[in-house]
Each structure stands twice: as structure tokens, then as C-alpha cells.
Amino acid sequence: MSFLLDPFSADFMVRAFIAGVVIGGLCALVGVLVVQRGLAFIGDGLAHAAFGGIALGLLIGPALEKNRAIAGSARAMTMVRDGSWIALPFTVLIALGIAFVLRRGRLRGDAATGVFFAVSFALGVLFLGLRPTSAPPVNVEAVLFGSILAVTPSDLLTATVVAVLVAGVLILVWPKLAYALFDRELAELSGVRVAVLDYLLLAIAAVVTVVAVKTAGVVLVSAYVVIPAATARMIGRRLSSVAIIAVVLGAAGSAIGLLASYHLNVASGATIILTLGLIFALGLAFGPRRRA
């Protein structure tokens, strides 16, 4: 029993555990939808877009810290200091740009994502290089690989609020969205506004990615999006059951991975991803076989 309870003697571990479960479940839910839309790499693309946004936020943030209204609010200061105040609108704009390119139909999803991903990341590197030497140093490693153990109560609150809102919106639009994911033409024939749903899904993916980057890091966030969704696809027979399985696997993988990293004294983000990978391998080996 102490194996399970010991890690929670420290507050930061409790926060990390809850954040991991919330982010793991949230990314998996969005992952099921984007994977079904043929945009499995959107998490990767948007995470790199978030890097560009974070870097831009860090570049112009110091000037804003002098603003009295911002300086007076602890939450506003946190957002300015971690760059998320720019990363959020920046990433949403990139997501809408990808949706626009997809709708024009000249590029496939992976190509559109690849273009935006590379340009945003290059902008991020450029923005970081333009920061004055007097600016506080940036922990690039934490941005790239995440820092789940450094999650603050404020981060946790943000993640939870976003999770509740996203889940609510997705439940609301689920029938129309699922129909559009199955076949856009048939859905349109039934009066579903497929274009609006495209933009909505990518905007939601952007918001979730920005929130997840804080804990999972730019490089690893796509694993939270893709692996539980891919595993659940092998097991579930209906889209709704695939979504539930993915959420459970994402949350459980994060929890188990975090506990394992604590006891093995190894990097938590990487251990969580490896746990999700192990669950995928088990699904592959023991999951139901489909007709060839």
C-alpha cells in the first residue's frame, strides 16, 4: 500500500498526479476525434505552433510586466511569464489556418500540418534568439519536454476548467461531429455544418495542446493525443466506446507512468509516454482481431 501512497506525501506529486490524469484523459478524448479526422499529427504540429507562441510571448512579455494592471494580478503575471498568454491565441490561429488549408482541399492534413509546424517552430527559435540578453533565462528543456512535477495550483485549475469546458462542448456537438467524421458528404446531406465543426475541432485541439504543453512538453504532447486514441481504436467497436476507452487509458497511463517514474527515479514525462506505449503494445498483442 505504501508503494501507492508514499508518492503523495508531497504536494507537488498530488498536483502532478491530478494534472497527469486530467491532461491524459483530455488529450485522449481530443485524440480520438483528430485521429478519426485523419490528423493524427495535429497534436505534434500544434505543440510546435505553441512553441512559436510561447517564444513570442517571452519576447514581448517583459515589456508587459511593467504594466500596472498585469503586475497587480498574480494569474496575469504567471501567464505573461510562461508565454501562454500569446501561445493560446497564436496556436488557435495556426489551427484555424490548418483547417482553412484543409477545406480548400489542395493539401492533405499531414502536409498542411507539416508546413505550419515547421514555420511556427522556426519562428519560435527566431523569437527566443531576439530576446535581450538582460531578459530572464528560459528553460527550453522544460518547454520541450514538459515539467509535470512543476505544475502549480493555478496550472491545475486551468487544466481542470479547460477539461470540463471541452468535454461539455464535445458532448454537445458529438452527434453532428461523429457523423461528419464518418462521412463528410453524408453528414452534409443531413444538414450537418461540416465546415463549422472542422474549425471547432481544430480550435479545441489547439486549446488542449497549449494546456498540455505545460505538463507534457512540446515534443511529447502528441503521444498523449495519439497513443491512447490508437490503442482504443483497436479495442472499441463504436466511436463512443472508443472515446471512453481512450480517456480511461490516457488517464490511467499518466497515473501509472507517474508512479513508476517516482519509484524508479527517472524522468516522469518520458515514463508516462513509455507506459502509454506499453499499453498500446498490449492492445496490439491481445486486442480483438479484425477481418482482413
Partner: peptide, 21 residues
Amino acid sequence: FDRDFPATAVELIVANLRGGW
């Protein structure tokens, strides 16, 4: 259409009745 979409025949037919999945 996506032939691997996780769905049953009855869901597909009812989706046409309802205009939603």
C-alpha cells in the same frame, strides 16, 4: 467513407433517420 470507422450497421442507418450520429 472510412471503412474502419468504429460503428455498427444500426448506428449508420439510425444516423440517417436522425441527421446525427
